[in-house]
């Protein structure tokens, strides 16, 4: 048992956990943030994706102890002031989700993808970038559409602001 401290969704949090505790379980059980999911055992499905120090990582393959001192954003930290993040809004507008279980990981992945690629995303890039996220419901069609729409929206907004 060790005390772990990190910043989660802008708030400093601490919790006691075993050294073997995974980041995803720390987030779900110690912090009660159950939007981050576990869908596999082998680091492939991506339902557990969060951002650590600004980059997407799989919280099921990261120890809470490894994340101590870092800055974590989960799906619960994305919408600001009750307004959906543009990626969340695009998933809703384009029916980019069905059962919702892979959705938090998909959204966190999409935010990271758009951060790295900006408005330069095309369909092939989006599909390649989704290698680490499995969805069983949508056939990805509307997820790809959602991400392209969000990228256009966010890329457009950034250009407009410059």
């Amino acid at each position: 048992m060790a005390k772990i401290t990190m910043t989660v969704n802008g708030r400093q949090v601490s919790g006691q956990c075993d050294d073997r505790t995974l980041l995803v379980h720390f987030i779900r059980e110690n912090l009660g943030l159950t939007g981050t999911h576990v869908g596999c055992d082998t680091s492939q499905c991506g339902t557990c994706v969060v951002h650590m120090d600004g980059k997407s990582v799989k919280s099921c393959s990261t120890l809470a102890a490894q994340a101590a001192g870092s800055d974590i954003t989960t799906i619960e930290g994305l919408a600001a002031n009750g307004e959906l993040h543009p990626v969340q809004a695009a998933f809703k507008a384009n029916h980019g989700l069905q059962c919702g279980f892979c959705t938090p990981g998909m959204v966190m992945t999409a935010v990271d993808m758009i951060r790295r690629h900006g408005g330069q995303l095309d369909e092939a890039t989006v599909r390649a970038e989704l290698e680490g996220n499995i969805c069983r419901c949508t056939g990805y069609h509307n997820i790809v559409k959602s991400i392209l729409a969000a990228a256009a929206e966010m890329g457009g907004a950034r250009v407009a602001a410059e």
């Binding site: 393959s61 990261t62 290698e131 680490g132």
Partner: peptide, 8 residues
């Protein structure tokens, strides 16, 4: 791997 794996 995938983008998340590459980040770690």
């Amino acid at each position: 791997g995938d983008p998340h794996v590459r980040h770690m």
